[in-house]
Design a protein around this nucleic acid. Structure first.
Length: 815
RNA sequence: GCGAAAGUGGCGGAACUGGCAGACGCGCUGGAUUUAGGAUCCAGUGGGGUUACCCAUGGGGGUUCAAGUCCCCCCUUUCGCACCA
């Protein structure tokens, strides 16, 4: 056996075993080093096992954690499984394997794969959200919500997937109106569901974004998702009827320009508004919109449709009678489900008015041009001067906007209002594989929460989970029939389970003490370890998991359970790895199977190649041959140590250039690792190794070389943990390299005395000159003007200008 | 349609607050070593041109001594949002 050949599989199993035996990665609760909670988004135990996306999340994140450890932090890096959810249940329906079993099997397999990454996970802190010991406390979170008045039941139109036979959250419906999981067209259906009142926290969810270091992109998405808009609620009495239309508008300044009102077709007020003459047509229209799917209906390109109800509303500011229409361009679930229409100043109303020949009344004139309602081709939505607006003519629309709401409030017509696009969080799922909702429905007492002492409400195992349009649990009498906790009479459990996003909304609190049995989390440990210092995971969770987790944290903060209200101080989204420029997918047949490459090259090479491919933020394109480069690099390191570390040197002289290279490498890898620029970090290490080979070919100072290589090995270790540990021990050390300290670089060594200065003539590089960094401008100028190459360009010409930027560049302008 | 990010060799990608474009790697070419293959090592590698030259960071303008980087217009791609009143 040639020991000059880098054999990763041998090395890697050896050191993983050693680390486990020595407890290298056991988290020390009592350490007095500063804490660092490094968290990755836990994984869903699917039959597809760990894919490259997982690796790309976990490998580099572990490198970061190891780096932090070497920098002197007490790093907490846990791992677990988000084990409830639809796919396991769908799998069960198809193959007849109980979700509990398939989940268990998948977890076991994935644990093995996760261990192969060689990350510093301390498995004593593992979480499985489908474990009754865990979901007991997910139910506790529900009860907290209930106690805080933030959980309520409501009959509401919900997204229904006919294939999965379940309700979906808005976020689980794709832009095309399809089920995120199975691609079936989603329809609307009315059901009584549990909601969490996230809308109560809208403003605080916005405010908190100012205090956290998250990607701007993600913050913008959350802000848009919350969609705060300021405006007014205005009441329009209905002519000859004891009814009022309440509309929300952000443009109260256009109130005099209202020429009709529109109500969403599914709004309950519609039947009351419809006159006998119009009833037939209105009902036809409503039926038509109900069968249309959401995308067609909500598309901007969608031709405006609508029907007159026969009723008229009265504009409260001028008493004008205006027709009330119904149209599907008004969304029932936003605002009040009805709007005042100002075609002159709103593009959508304009299109509608044009189509149905409704009047257009201009109330705002731009300052420099005059617009006319007959000739205008689009609505005018900018500010201007008020006209046709009674006593308010002549003032600017911006001032008017501020004043009109006060006027409304004085007259009792309307009031200031802030509206949000954010909807309450629908958490009921009519599925089996989730945490049961801890509520009992009692004919006498109504909805009664299950007392905390009776938790968990255990998910029964013997259940027929084939879809039948209602929750599988509803057909399990042993589960359903229960005594009311309040009156002791016969009652029924809630048959629904919770959205898995509830499970993942608080898991980071559980990690620090996942086995605690009398409380969801260990308060002392949570105070010590939270908030999470670095959270790393996919951008696809921007408006779901990441918003829910923030909400739950704020709720628990208000409940006095925790002392911080933002869970993740720093957030980073890793990019996506493509292959041949395309997203990996089974249908394209371009999926990289990590196991295959890990087996061939080892996990150090695999992890490092992923980090080298491109920027961590943007991802990169996988190349089957590209991985060779990293494999060669690690082999080169292996041979370097094996061949030269113990070579008898013949000189006492140190190499200034290699020393400088080392310090430059330490500094670069440090700053690049801090900013997740792993690819450049690796490039710097490659440069070091190239220089080290140049050095060992010359006369060696053994002590100097050993010193240099020891330090480099520590720098390498977060990136190639197994190899670094192997070589560390090869050089004679007994303890783990991960118990070392990150080497310090010396700024003085990095300072250059002599530099090669670029010399440009008319902005074009013509030559370089060696100068002393400290030489003054006149000396540099004198030297440059004497230079042969420079003379070639300057003789016979006039030097108009000489520019010297110290230590950077010189530019001579000649004519 | 709105919002955000990005467009650099054959390929993946570097380039900090404007200052030597193409670091590092893949691939390729030539050479050394080897029975051969592989591995390794050395040299070269943006394009053009007969050697001290010209052209090049999606396209077109501009600012500047100097632009991949700043400003304006346009094109393309990716990702969010999508009649939110």
């Amino acid at each position: 056996m040639n020991n000059m050949i880098y054999n990763p599989s041998e090395i890697e199993t050896k050191w993983r075993k050693w680390w486990e035996e020595k407890g290298t990665y056991k988290f020390n609760k009592n350490s007095n080093k500063p804490k660092f909670y490094n968290l990755v988004m836990f994984s869903y135990p699917s039959g597809n096992k760990l894919h490259i996306g997982h690796w790309y999340n976990y490998g580099p994140a572990d490198t970061f954690a190891r780096y932090k450890r070497l920098k002197g932090f007490n790093v907490f890096e846990p791992m677990g499984f988000d084990a409830f959810g639809l796919p396991a249940e769908n799998y069960a329906i198809k193959h007849g394997i109980h979700p509990a079993i398939s989940t268990r099997n998948n977890i076991e397999y994935m644990e093995k794969q996760l261990k192969a990454i060689g990350a510093m996970y301390d498995w004593d802190y593992e979480i499985d959200t489908s474990d009754p010991k865990y979901y007991k406390w997910t139910q506790w979170v529900f009860l907290k919500m209930y106690e805080m008045g933030l959980a309520y039941q409501k009959e509401a139109p919900v997204n229904w997937c006919p294939h999965c036979q379940t309700v979906l959250a808005n976020e689980q419906v794709t832009a095309d109106g399809e089920c995120e999981r199975c691609g079936t067209k989603v329809i609307k259906r009315n059901l009584k569901q549990w909601f969490f009142k996230i809308t109560d926290y809208a403003d605080r969810l916005l405010e908190g974004l100012e205090r956290i270091n998250w990607p701007e992109k993600t913050k913008i998405m959350q802000r848009n998702w919350i969609g705060r808009s300021e405006g007014a609620m205005i009441e329009f009495p209905v002519k000859d009827k004891d009814l009022k239309l309440t509309v929300f508008t952000t443009r109260p300044d256009t109130i005099f320009g209202v020429t009709y009102c529109v109500v969403a077709p599914e709004h309950s007020i519609v039947s009351k508004l419809t006159t006998d003459a119009q009833r037939n047509e209105v009902e036809k229209y409503i039926n038509k919109t109900l069968t249309e799917n959401e995308i067609e209906r909500q598309s901007t390109e969608h031709e405006k449709t609508g029907v007159f109800t026969g009723s008229y509303a009265i504009n409260p500011v001028n008493g004008e009678e205006i027709p009330i229409w119904i149209s599907d361009y008004v969304i029932a679930s936003y605002g009040t489900g009805m709007v005042m229409a100002v075609p002159a100043h709103d593009t959508r109303d304009f299109a509608f008015a044009k189509k149905f020949n409704l009047p257009i009344k201009i109330v705002i004139q731009p300052e420099n041009v005059t617009i006319d309602s007959k000739s205008m081709s689009d609505a005018y939505t900018e500010p201007g001067i008020m006209i046709n607006s009674g006593d308010f003519n002549g003032i600017s629309s911006i001032d008017f906007k501020k004043r009109i709401v006060d006027y409304f409030e004085e007259k009792g017509i309307g009031k200031r209002h802030i509206n949000y696009r954010l909807r309450d969080w629908l958490i009921s799922r009519q599925r089996y594989w989730g945490a049961p909702i801890p509520i009992v429905h009692c004919p006498k007492c109504g909805t009664v929460p299950v007392p905390v002492d009776d938790l968990p409400v255990k998910l029964p195992e013997n259940v027929d989970f084939n879809p039948k349009g209602k929750s599988p649990l509803a057909s399990v009498p042993e589960f359903m029939n229960v005594k009311c906790p309040k009156c002791g009479g016969d009652a029924e459990r809630d048959p629904d389970t919770m959205d898995t996003f509830v499970c993942s909304s608080w898991y980071y609190l559980r990690y620090p003490d996942p086995h605690i049995d009398d409380y969801p989390f260990n308060k002392e440990m949570v105070d010590k370890l939270l908030p999470v210092d670095q959270y790393i995971g996919g951008a696809e969770h921007a408006t779901m998991h990441l918003l829910y987790a923030r909400f739950v944290t704020k709720m628990l903060y208000d409940a006095g359970e925790i002392q911080f209200d933002e869970p993740f101080t720093n957030l980073f989204h890793q990019g996506t790895i493509t292959r041949n420029g395309a997203k990996m997918s089974k249908s394209r047949g371009n999926v990289v199977n990590p196991d295959e490459f890990v087996e061939k090259y080892g996990s150090d090479t695999f992890r490092m190649y992923m980090m080298f491919m491109g920027s961590y933020e943007e991802g990169g394109d996988w190349d089957d041959k590209g991985i060779n480069g990293i494999h060669r690099f690690l082999s080169r390191i292996y041979r370097l140590y094996k061949t030269y570390y113990f070579t008898e040197g013949k000189t006492k002289e140190e190499s200034k250039s290699l020393k400088k290279r080392l310090h430059y490498t330490i500094k670069s890898v440090e700053t690049d690792t801090e900013r997740f620029s792993f690819n450049t970090s690796i490039a710097r290490m490659m440069e070091f190794v190239n220089d080290a080979y140049d050095y060992v070919k010359k006369e060696i100072n053994t002590e100097f070389l050993q010193n240099t290589l020891d330090k480099f090995l520590i720098v390498l270790s977060p990136y190639a943990p197994h190899l670094a540990e192997e070589l560390w021990h090869f050089t004679g050390k007994e303890s783990s390299i991960f118990d070392e300290e990150w080497p310090k670089y010396d700024e003085d060594i990095l300072k250059e005395e002599k530099i090669s200065l670029a010399v440009q003539i008319n902005g074009k590089l013509r030559t370089t000159v060696e100068i002393d960094i400290n030489s003054n401008e006149s000396d540099v100028k004198e030297l440059i003007l004497k230079n042969e190459r420079v003379l070639h360009y300057t003789t016979g010409k006039t030097i108009k200008k000489f520019i010297y930027i110290k230590g950077k560049i010189a530019n001579i302008v000649v004519v």
